[in-house]
Amino acid sequence: MRAWATAWERKDMNGYFGAYVPGFRGNDGSASEWQAGRRLRILGKNRISLELSGITVELMPGNVARASFRQDYSADQLRASGQKVLELVRRDGRWLIRKESVS
């Protein structure tokens, strides 16, 4: 999760997208639409800062984990805070995001 957040802050799109399962679609239709939307939103910012706190991880059957944490995001003039939940799956020795939600 920290590598994902660091890639996001650095606008390292390969590292950011590499934290997700192949074909991840988010809520934007197809995987390519999701990636195009994220690319525009991330690369369009001058500066991005993320702070993750209160991280809890619950291991579930089938090489699955659920991570929940508070995410404090700021970019340019925008500031947002909220609870985020990532559902991760272990593939080829790496934990990859397969689902995310914000409350």
Rank of each mutant, 00 (worst) to 15 (best):
M1P: 12
R2V: 08
R2P: 11
A5K: 10
A5Q: 13
A7V: 10
E9H: 09
E9F: 07
K11G: 09
K11C: 09
K11D: 12
D12E: 09
M13Y: 00
G15S: 03
G15Y: 02
Y16T: 11
Y16M: 13
Y16K: 10
Y16W: 12
G18M: 02
G18Y: 02
G18D: 13
A19Y: 00
A19Q: 01
A19D: 00
Y20E: 02
Y20T: 02
Y20R: 02
V21Q: 02
V21W: 02
P22N: 14
F24V: 01
F24C: 01
G26P: 03
N27W: 03
N27M: 07
D28G: 05
G29M: 04
G29V: 03
S30I: 02
S30C: 04
S32T: 13
S32H: 12
E33L: 05
A36G: 02
A36N: 04
A36E: 08
G37S: 09
R41N: 13
L43C: 05
G44P: 14
K45P: 12
K45I: 06
K45C: 11
I48E: 06
S49A: 10
S49W: 02
L50M: 08
L50G: 03
L50S: 05
E51D: 10
E51A: 05
L52H: 03
L52V: 06
L52Q: 07
S53T: 15
S53E: 15
T56I: 07
V57K: 06
E58K: 11
E58T: 10
L59Q: 06
M60R: 15
M60Y: 03
P61Q: 10
P61E: 14
G62F: 01
G62E: 08
G62S: 04
N63G: 06
V64A: 05
V64F: 02
V64R: 03
V64Q: 04
A65R: 08
A65G: 03
A65N: 01
R66H: 00
R66N: 01
R66A: 01
A67E: 15
A67S: 15
F69G: 10
Q71K: 08
D72C: 01
D72V: 00
D72Q: 04
D72N: 05
Y73G: 04
S74W: 07
A75S: 11
D76Q: 14
D76M: 08
Q77R: 10
Q77L: 06
L78P: 12
L78V: 12
R79K: 14
A80G: 14
Q83F: 05
K84C: 00
K84D: 01
K84N: 04
V85I: 14
V85P: 15
V85L: 08
V85E: 15
V85S: 13
L86P: 14
E87A: 06
R90H: 13
R91M: 00
D92R: 11
D92V: 03
G93S: 04
G93D: 14
G93R: 11
R94C: 01
R94P: 05
L96M: 13
L96A: 10
I97D: 04
K99R: 10
S101I: 07
V102H: 15
V102L: 12
